[in-house]
Design a binder for these strands. Sequence first.
DNA 1: CGGAAAGTTCAATCTTTTTTGAACAATCTC
DNA 2: GAGATTGTTCAAAAAAGATTGAACTTTCCG
Lengths: 178, 178
Amino acid sequence: MDSSPPIEATVAAPPLEGVEFLPLDECERGVIEMFVSAADVLGFPRSLGELYGLAYISPQPIHLAEVCERLKMSKGSASQGLRTLRDLGALKPVYVAGDRRDFFQPEIKMRVLVGRLLAERLRPHLERSSGALGQLKNEADATVTPQVKKFRQERIEMLGAWQKRISTFLPLLQRILR
Amino acid sequence: MDSSPPIEATVAAPPLEGVEFLPLDECERGVIEMFVSAADVLGFPRSLGELYGLAYISPQPIHLAEVCERLKMSKGSASQGLRTLRDLGALKPVYVAGDRRDFFQPEIKMRVLVGRLLAERLRPHLERSSGALGQLKNEADATVTPQVKKFRQERIEMLGAWQKRISTFLPLLQRILR
DNA sequence: CGGAAAGTTCAATCTTTTTTGAACAATCTC
DNA sequence: GAGATTGTTCAAAAAAGATTGAACTTTCCG
């Protein structure tokens, strides 16, 4: 018969059934939007920007239920997103005595954030490709046409120079961001 | 030693219908793969990595038909990809006398490549968000709870500091990469 | 133990991005 | 001008990526 849920009669009482947290205000939305945009620049999904943004502008540590309700995000998404950000070092677990829930605070040291990002993204690529470079050099050396061989050797040499440049640049960046 | 059977039957390749260019050899494939991986790190589609990679390891300027055949890429994709890379400044048009086709050579100055990338990606974001910051400050100032207001003002202040840091860092980066 | 609370997992779904291919436009050649 | 060559456009298909939600595990507590 009537499969619709029972209509909430307590209109006067602000705390509706299942609503525990305040909706985002103008300021919070603005800050979150900024982090969403940053996430976009970095190629991260929107939801990660929302999660970090909320943590960033929240005076108190955030937790799963709050995040689901205030950002209107599914539990699955929020759970995975929080984990990703924790693994990335962008959110730090915070222990709250007598509370079983997992709370998170944002890492706000730019140096740490950038460092983690580079370690996560760039380093694997650098390692893979510096490994591949040796093999590539052999293949260039095996080229028959002398002109083409020389050209290839030069270009692959330059690839190595680029990699080296990036590798030496990373520690420098870390120092600058202190 | 070499356990593979000595198959060396490939002499004069039969000129197949519609096949004008040599297939990629081991070396070319390796270099292209490296740029595909780099494109991935930067969040660009695979095809852009392939296109730039082929241009990078080709002694001669590349053109549409060659790219389609050697990379097994549709004409549409190749056309759009070449355009995107040209707009980005990663590929430079080359005039070849007496040939109506559009040829391209790669930009190989790292400083230029990085500079274009940042201008394309980061700058729009920085402009948008430095515009939004003023508004955000107002909203923080309008917060009722004194503690929360103070907290928000501090965090938004820090956002501004981050932006400034990035902005001053970009010219420095350009100088380092000279 | 039984139930509630918190969090995880993952197949299905939805969304966005990328690629294809055929039609079209522009330009050259004879 | 007719035909060939080169490149562009864009609607549709395919692929990749993100999100949902419901079932499940674990832990806590009386």
